Computed example of a mutant assay.
Amino acid sequence: MIDLHYWPTPNGKKVSIFRMPATVDHAPADGGGPLSVFESGAILFYLAEKTGKFWPQDLRGKYEVTQWVIWQMANQGPKLGEAGHFRRLADREGDQSYAVRRFTDEANRLYGVLNMRLRDRRYLAGDEFTIADIVSYPWTVNWQATGSRHQELKHFKRWFEEVGARPGVQRGLAVGADLSTDNSKLSEEEQARIRKILYNQRALPVPD
């Protein structure tokens, strides 16, 4: 049994699409005690290796997938997250025009990278659906929030629609739907409390 500690953000949905973010595997392959893994990319590698699915193990296929998982973790997720953040909060935090332009342009560039990659292959790592697609897709679902126009990117649009139509992806996206909150229906005080939790945190002191 694997426990999934989860919240319905794009990073959490990477793991729920895989079907099982932190996980605890109570039956790890080494036969030892429970094994915990955190970080969505590491969890996908772990689950793919454990199940033998969505991650080819031949040398070339393995690293074709691996490099795109790392690309997502280092580029797509952080930059699209910043684009959504600054575009969403620009009207309440003073002049954020540079940050909005910077990350909106970067989001557009990264959608272009996906579009270019998909021009001559069905999925990000070739002809097979892999964790490279699983890790990237959840961050494209709310493409409107980053100011992107995916209909102008025909190769990306084809992939986006095909991956989104997969029953396993649809089931994965539905996980945790009951945990989502419509912030517009919350009081200003509650919205402020949530922002304080989510944004501008600093390092906590290390206990003695």
Rank of each mutant, 00 (worst) to 15 (best):
G84E: 03
Y63N: 09
A90F: 08
A27Y: 11
L59T: 11
V69H: 03
A90L: 07
T23D: 10
R119N: 15
V37R: 00
W68C: 08
K53T: 11
F45R: 02
Q72M: 06
G84C: 11
P21C: 12
A99N: 12
A74W: 00
L35G: 03
V100F: 14
P10R: 00
S36K: 07
Y46D: 00
N11M: 05
N75R: 07
L35Q: 06
V65P: 03
F18R: 05
D30S: 08
G94M: 09
Q96T: 12
G61C: 12
R117N: 14
N11G: 02
F45G: 00
T23W: 06
L44W: 02
M20I: 08
R102I: 15
W55L: 05
V113T: 15
M116S: 13
T51R: 01
E64R: 04
M73T: 05
G84I: 11
K50E: 01
R102P: 10
R121A: 06
E93N: 13
L114V: 15
A48C: 02
L47K: 04
Q96F: 10
E82G: 07
N75M: 09
L35W: 00
Q67F: 01
L47M: 03
D25E: 10
L114E: 13
G84K: 06
T51P: 04
G33F: 07
K14V: 06
Q67H: 02
A107G: 10
K53G: 05
K50Q: 00
A83N: 07
G32C: 04
G12Q: 01
Y123K: 10
A107M: 12
F86H: 06
T104P: 11
H26W: 13
S16W: 02
S36W: 02
P28R: 10
V113A: 15
R117C: 15
A83Q: 06
N115R: 12
R60F: 14
G112W: 15
G31S: 12
R88I: 09
D120M: 11
E49N: 04
M20G: 09
A27Q: 11
P10E: 03
R87H: 10
M116I: 10
V65K: 03
H85E: 09
G32P: 09
D58P: 05
A99K: 11
K53C: 12
L118V: 13
G84D: 06
P10T: 00
L47A: 01
A99C: 11
W71C: 04
V24N: 14
Q57M: 08
I70K: 04
G94I: 13
Q72E: 08
W55K: 01
D30C: 12
Y111F: 15
H85M: 10
Q76C: 08
E39C: 04
K13V: 01
P56I: 06
N108P: 08
G32A: 11
D120A: 15
A48M: 01
A42W: 00
W71L: 04
L89G: 03
T23Q: 14
A90K: 12
G84H: 08
S16H: 05
